[in-house]
């Protein structure tokens, strides 16, 4: 892989706090190496802004290896940038060429209000989990781990759903700002396991109720969420969630 350096134009959303009105600002960055990660390019820009006595761009990031789910940029119209099954922190500058213009926006959804610049408040996800995204088992109550065999296929399917990192790209990509992929991943993860059976009905009803309350939109199965999910969570989970929801709604007292 040949390395190269490039000059870029960045249009970045700046917003002082949740109450202020934001706008785009344009920055030129020079001599960006193709080996840099996207966030390192942002670091370089921020370093310059600080030296110039300006405020650096605030953005969420932490592990920088694609697993914590903190990073959240909407880059040139796509959550986490152009690469498939990828997070912003794993995006590298070789995805761009000299002279490119890159527009960087925060996740936009009523349920994810902007906190500052590119940082949004995703605590709605935590509240959805609080509504039922768990198995109620106090520490010390567990029986031997192998006393409950679980079909390998189901365990694997459950794991695939549990791989969700809670980044919110699904909401950002959805034209309805729906959180169905996130909620369905959790519902599937727990519904596929026998441990999750006792709370199966209340879980799905309560989580959906909370999701609606938080102001996420309704799912119209456009499939945008699946196509941008960094962990490739399948939309089939949404259909599973619907089935859980309908059955629970019809059979609960």
């Amino acid at each position: 892989m040949e390395h190269y350096s490039m000059n870029l134009t960045l249009k970045v959303w700046r917003q002082k706090n949740k109450d202020s009105k934001g706008d785009f600002e344009t920055y030129k960055v020079e001599n960006i190496s193709s080996e840099m990660s996207f966030l390192e390019m942002m670091d370089v820009l921020n370093d310059r802004l600080i030296r110039e006595g300006k405020e650096p761009i605030a953005f969420d990031h932490d592990c920088r290896e694609g697993i914590c789910g903190t990073c959240s940029m909407y880059i040139n119209g796509r959550p986490h940038g152009p690469w498939h099954a990828n997070t912003t922190c794993q995006l590298h500058m070789r995805a761009y060429k000299d002279g490119d213009t890159i527009v960087v926006e925060p996740w936009r959804a009523k349920a994810f209000p902007v906190v500052k610049d590119l940082i949004v408040d995703r605590s709605a996800f935590d509240r959805i989990i609080q509504a039922g995204g768990y198995i109620s088992v106090n520490t010390g109550n567990a029986v031997d781990a192998n006393s409950l065999p679980i079909e390998k296929e189901k365990a694997d399917e459950s794991f695939a759903a549990a791989a969700c990192i809670g980044c919110g790209a699904c909401v950002a990509a959805c034209k309805n700002s729906s959180a169905m992929l996130f909620v369905s991943a959790k519902v599937s993860h727990l519904a596929l396991l026998p441990q999750g059976a006792p709370e199966r009905k209340t879980r799905v009803l309560n989580m959906i109720a909370q999701m609606d309350k938080e102001g996420f939109g309704a799912c119209t199965n456009t499939q945008a969420c699946e196509s941008v999910c960094p962990k490739e969570i399948s939309m089939t989970n949404i259909a599973k969630l619907n089935s859980e929801y309908i059955i629970s709604g019809l059979t609960s007292r």
């Binding site: 249009k11 796509r78 936009r108 009523k110 199965n221 945008a224």
Partner: peptide, 23 residues
Amino acid sequence: NRSRRQTAYAVSLGNRGSKWYRR
């Protein structure tokens, strides 16, 4: 659903995420 996003994106995902008729 339209009210769930108050500020529109400057660049939209468009057909990269889903077919036009699905949206």
